[in-house]
C-alpha cells in the first residue's frame, strides 16, 4: 500500500473503502489531498483487485470543499490545480470498478463534485449537500456537466445558480442519490447495497458507464457506432469466457 497523508485506504476482498480524511482534519481538498487522490487512482487502476470503491468521510463531514489556498484566487497556478482535480475525477470515472459515495453530513462543493463522479450515492438523513461555488464567483467544475444529467436542467440551474443547500430526501427525489438511510444505519445499508452491486465485471462496467455518460451528450446516430464497438468487445470476451469454461 502506498503511503497516503490524507486518506485512509482499507481494502477487504472485493471492497476498498476510502476514508477521505481523519477525524480532526477539516476535510478540504488541499494539494496534499489532491496528490493522494491522484496516487489513489493509479493504485486503484494498477494494483487494487477490488471491484467496489466506497468513499466516505468521518465525524459528520464527507467533504466541505476545495481548499481556497490551493484552488482559490491568488495562487498563480490554481487553474492547473483545477485541471489536476478534474483529471483525478475523470480517472475515477474511468475505473473498471463500481464507485460509490457514502455521504454522512457535510457535502459541499468538491464533496458534491466527487460524489457526482461516482457511479452511486448513499446519503444519510443528516446530510446536507450544496454547490455554493457560483455564489462565490467561480464554477463547480465538471459537476456542471454531471449534475444536470441526474437532476434535469431546471433543478440543476436552481441548485448551481442559487447555491442553496439541499437534503438527502430532496436528492433522492431528484435521482441524485440512490439510497437514503439514518446515520446509524449507514454501515448496514452499505452492506446491502454492496450485495446488490457485486459481483462486478469491471470491463463491462467501464464500457456501460462510458456509454451512459455519453447518452445525454450526443445524437443517437453519432453514437450507434460507439455502442456497436463496445458491444462487440463484450460479446468477444463472453465468447472467450464460454470457450474456456467449455474447455
Amino acid at each position: 500500500m502506498r503511503p497516503f497523508r490524507t486518506l485512509i485506504v482499507d481494502e477487504r476482498e472485493e471492497i476498498a473503502t476510502i476514508t477521505l480524511h481523519e477525524p480532526g482534519g477539516n476535510g478540504e481538498i488541499d494539494l496534499a489531498a489532491l496528490e493522494d487522490l491522484e496516487t489513489l487512482m493509479v493504485w486503484l487502476e494498477d494494483e487494487s483487485s477490488c471491484s467496489l470503491v466506497v468513499f466516505c468521510g468521518t465525524a459528520g463531514v464527507f467533504c466541505p470543499g476545495l481548499n481556497p489556498a490551493a484552488f482559490g484566487p491568488g495562487t498563480t497556478d490554481s487553474i492547473h490545480t483545477h485541471n489536476r482535480w478534474e483529471k483525478a475525477l475523470v480517472a475515477l470515472e474511468r475505473l473498471p470498478k463500481v464507485t460509490l459515495a457514502a455521504i454522512d453530513g457535510v457535502c459541499v462543493g468538491a464533496g458534491v463534485q466527487l460524489a457526482l463522479a461516482c457511479d452511486h450515492r448513499i446519503a444519510t438523513t443528516s446530510t446536507s449537500m450544496q454547490l455554493p461555488e457560483v455564489k462565490h464567483g467561480y464554477l463547480p467544475g465538471m459537476a456542471l456537466f454531471r449534475l444536470a444529467k441526474y437532476v434535469g436542467l431546471g433543478v440543476a440551474k436552481r441548485l448551481v445558480l442559487s447555491g442553496v443547500p439541499w437534503s438527502a430526501t430532496d436528492a433522492l427525489g431528484w435521482g441524485l442519490v440512490d439510497w437514503v438511510c439514518e446515520p446509524d444505519l449507514l454501515a448496514s445499508t452499505l452492506e446491502q447495497v454492496a450485495e446488490q452491486i457485486l459481483p462486478v465485471n469491471g470491463d463491462t462496467v467501464r464500457l456501460a458507464r462510458r456509454l451512459l455518460n455519453e447518452s445525454f451528450a450526443e445524437p443517437i446516430e453519432d453514437v450507434l457506432g460507439s455502442l456497436l464497438a463496445a458491444q462487440h468487445r463484450c460479446i468477444s470476451r463472453m465468447n472467450v469466457d464460454r470457450a474456456s469454461e467449455g474447455a
Binding site: 487502476e45 467501464r206 464500457l207 462510458r210 457506432g225 460507439s226 464497438a229 463496445a230 468487445r233
Partner: peptide, 27 residues
C-alpha cells in the same frame, strides 16, 4: 508506460467504424 501516460494519439482515419472500435477498445 501506461495508457494514461499517452497524451497524443495519431490514428489512421480508416473509417468511422474502425475509429469507434479503436476508441472503445483502447479506452
Amino acid at each position: 508506460l501506461k495508457r494514461r501516460d499517452i497524451q497524443k494519439w495519431i490514428i489512421h482515419s480508416g473509417g468511422r467504424k474502425v475509429i469507434d472500435t479503436m476508441k472503445y477498445n483502447l479506452g
